[in-house]
Design a protein around this nucleic acid. Structure first.
Lengths: 211, 211
DNA sequence: ATTATCTATAGATCTATAGATAATGC
DNA sequence: ATTATCTATAGATCTATAGATAATGC
């Protein structure tokens, strides 16, 4: 199953017509990277299968050797934007030795870092209107679980414990909204150093939470 | 020039094939409303001229009697989402009898109300990736001016006056980001009473601002 | 023989124009 | 005569499949 292989190991199959420096990625990963860039900058529907394939260095039809179409690419990219944060959120929820305030701060910071990580503002995929389609219900479920983790941590803080349900929901929405707004802010200024930004956003989130 | 005319006044021209209860809107306004709904829910590129026209009650080709194409519709809708807020922001900047904190709060509240106004989450248009195109530079200019109004108000507050330039920019981004995040929050829960939400968001914005 | 790619293309759109038509206005 | 609409359609895509081809593997 060897990966794309070390230098010198020639690949099986007809050679690509556009030979380029080996990206070191598997063809499927090349397609995902190409899709990430195009979907986030031009949008999903505006991106053709030809554009994705060609950016990945192959012809349009060759793409179908690896994926069933655009939808599959988007679905996979979407999940990759929440899964790591969710895993971390679960860890934090299970940790009952650390104060909730601190855990909430950690989650905010990590979430912002993850949303801003990578070259293509992947978090921005979530803003695509097409994502609402039933096809992506899996992603929405994961995202709802992440939001619920925020709610639970918020409820466990001193300030949050005093809130009525409606109030807690509103605060959760505001905090979660602020975290997601980093997608927009990051989009408008991708140069900003992420760690400072993550810290400042976590601060802001805790202030909104009332801490 | 009479508008669509009072009841009973028949319209000139071949009748539409799909007769429907008079919406009371001019044909161009009907097209804009249809585009607003479709662009915000399905996205811009995913929306065909046929879909827009038919939702507006006419055939695809008839649309070209009123607009040059989809682009024109999006451009007009976009501007309509910032222009009112910007007008209000200018008023507030000119008013030097009211404390900056209060003016900032007012701008936040008004901006949220406007973003959530109307049936179709119009603010969400700004999230469309296609909006980055050069074609919409006009919109971006207006939006940048609105953001600058936030910056100026922020700088005029007691807390903001103490900030270095980089710090002020970061705060501005966070506050502006929070305001825009209402688009996302409103999208996920359109039922929430807007005035409460606007108040809570303004609160949150001022806390982020450090007030 | 197996594989990854290619070229070619059918079928399904989608946009924007041309030209016909069915109202009102004079 | 003027107008708002219609029907029809040319030209330009775009997707997904069929089948050919150029490598390596045995």
């Amino acid at each position: 199953m060897g990966t794309s292989g070390g230098p010198g190991s020639r690949r099986v199959g007809r050679p690509r017509v556009a030979r380029r420096p080996d990206s070191g990625l598997e063809p499927r990963a090349e397609l995902l990277a190409a899709a990430a860039e195009l979907f986030t900058t031009r949008g999903y529907s505006a991106t053709t299968t030809r554009a994705v394939a060609e950016r990945a260095g192959m012809r349009q039809a060759s793409m179908y050797h690896y994926v069933s179409g655009k939808e599959e690419l988007l679905a996979e990219l979407l999940e990759s934007t929440v899964t790591p944060s969710l895993a971390y959120a679960r860890e934090l929820l299970a940790d009952d030795t650390t104060p909730a305030e601190e855990r909430l701060r950690k989650l905010c910071r990590a979430d912002v870092e993850l949303l801003c990580a990578g070259p293509h503002n992947l978090g921005g995929l979530y803003l695509l209107p097409e994502v609402r389609a039933e096809r992506f219900a899996g992603f929405h479920a994961v995202r709802a679980e992440l939001k619920d983790a925020y709610r639970q941590l918020l409820a466990a803080t001193a300030a949050g414990g005093a809130l009525a349900k409606g109030e807690l929901d509103l605060r959760t929405d505001l905090v979660f909204g602020l975290i997601e707004s980093v997608i927009l802010v990051h989009r408008s200024d991708p140069e900003r150093p992420v760690s400072v930004f993550a810290e400042a956003t976590a601060d802001a989130a805790l202030r909104i939470a009332g801490i």
